[in-house]
Amino acid sequence: MSGNSNLQALTDAGVAIWLDDLSRQRINSGNLAELIANHNLVGVTSNPTIFAGAMSDARDYQEQISELAARGASVDQAVRELTTKDIRDAADVFREVHRATDGEDGRISIEVDPRLAHDTEGTVSEALELAKAVDRPNMFVKIPATVEGLPAITRTLAEGVSVNVTLIFSVQRYREVMEAFISGLEQARDNGHDISQIFSVASFFVSRVDSEIDKRLKAIDAPEHLYGKAAIANARLAYAAYEEVFAGERWQPLERAGARRQRPLWASTGVKNPEYSDTRYVDELVAPHTVNTMPESTLYAVADHGNIVGDTVRGTAAASQEVFDSLSAAGIDLDDVYAVLEREGVEKFEKSWNELLQTVSQQLEQAR
Rank of each mutant, 00 (worst) to 15 (best):
R59F: 04
Y227N: 12
M55C: 01
W266E: 05
N191H: 13
S320H: 01
D190W: 05
G72N: 05
D333E: 15
T123A: 15
E148A: 15
R250Y: 07
L254A: 13
E275W: 00
F205R: 05
V124I: 15
L185Q: 11
G14C: 09
D105T: 04
V42D: 01
A16D: 12
S162M: 11
E96L: 00
E176H: 14
S268L: 08
N164T: 09
Y242C: 09
S200V: 03
H225D: 14
L35K: 00
L356N: 08
D214E: 11
G258K: 13
V134A: 06
R236M: 10
F204W: 08
L285D: 08
S320M: 01
F140V: 07
P137L: 07
A267L: 10
A287S: 12
D336Y: 08
V42W: 00
S5Y: 02
D214P: 08
E34M: 04
I108R: 02
Q362N: 10
D119H: 13
Q362T: 09
D325L: 08
I65H: 03
D194H: 06
K218W: 06
A90L: 04
G310Y: 03
T49K: 01
Y227S: 15
L185I: 07
R368W: 05
G149V: 05
S29G: 04
V245E: 14
S196R: 14
T279E: 03
E243K: 15
A202T: 01
L130Q: 03
I87L: 07
R208V: 04
D21W: 01
A317G: 08
E212H: 03
D57A: 12
E342W: 00
Q62I: 02
D214G: 05
A319G: 08
D92C: 01
V340S: 10
I182Y: 07
T279C: 09
A317L: 07
E224M: 06
E255S: 14
K351Q: 09
P223T: 06
P274A: 09
Q187H: 06
S66M: 10
